[in-house]
């Protein structure tokens, strides 16, 4: 899932200071799971902003809304009545949700309340780990289900760099070297041989904004229908 962290309070308070009625819009999926932007966190942030506004003698009102996902237009529609009353929307969704909300409601200023951090796993209560960089060119079959693009800071595709030290990364003695993990895993499963061939340079055309149509729906979205 997508993981995000709340922006520093000061940044949020400053960005919203000029608006009288602010809707704090939570998102009930990924950012709720990572305890950053669900209904509870939206409520807490609104309460905090209210306290700060009162302390600074700003006449502001904060309201809370939360929908299932801000990345779906049908759910965003549910926010419309609240957004109509608001001078600005402070979205706690990931970058995708914030943008879609802005696109759906072109008239209202949209403020970002979180920094989207990564695609990761939910390790335990309050702990997440990055696992995927969405590079559109997955090598996990080759690398034993351990991603060198996201877990190796240099994204080395042909083996470890010289900075790998005792299973740890040169960037941080606490960080596992991705290639140490890959090597151990492939050795265990007897698949080290798959690494012998040189992995060619990756295709970075994925830097272009992505858009994906499911093959079954190609006709629907083609120019001809």
């Amino acid at each position: 899932m997508i993981v995000a962290e709340r922006k520093p309070f000061e940044e949020i308070a400053e960005a919203s200071a000029g608006f009288r009625r602010v809707l704090v819009a939570g998102c009930g999926t990924c950012v709720a799971v990572c305890l950053t932007g669900g209904e509870k966190e939206a409520g807490i942030l609104a309460a905090q902003l209210d306290i700060a506004a009162q302390l600074n003698q700003r006449e502001q009102a904060f309201e809370v809304g939360c929908v299932e996902r801000q990345c779906d237009r049908e759910f965003l529609d549910e926010l419309a009545p609240q957004i109509e009353q608001a001078d600005a929307v402070l979205s706690l969704a990931c970058g995708a949700g914030i943008q879609f909300l802005a696109e759906k409601f072109p008239e209202v200023p949209v403020l970002a309340g979180v920094n989207t951090t990564f695609i990761g796993i939910n390790d335990d209560v309050g702990v997440w780990q990055e696992k995927c960089r969405s590079c559109r060119d997955c090598v996990l079959t080759l690398t034993g289900g351990i991603c060198p693009m996201s877990l190796c800071p240099k994204g080395m595709l042909n083996g470890p760099c010289g900075g790998s030290d005792d299973g740890k990364c040169e960037t941080d003695p606490e960080r596992d070297c991705a290639w140490a993990l890959i090597s151990a895993r492939l050795e265990r499963t007897g698949r080290l041989g798959g690494l012998e061939a040189i992995v060619p340079a990756r295709d970075c055309r994925n830097a272009l904004p992505g858009k994906q149509v499911h093959p079954a729906y190609e006709r629907r979205y083609s120019a001809h229908e």
Partner: peptide
């Protein structure tokens, strides 16, 4: 921490 952030 949350209250600290608000200035209270």
């Amino acid at each position: 921490n949350l209250l600290e952030e608000t200035g209270l």
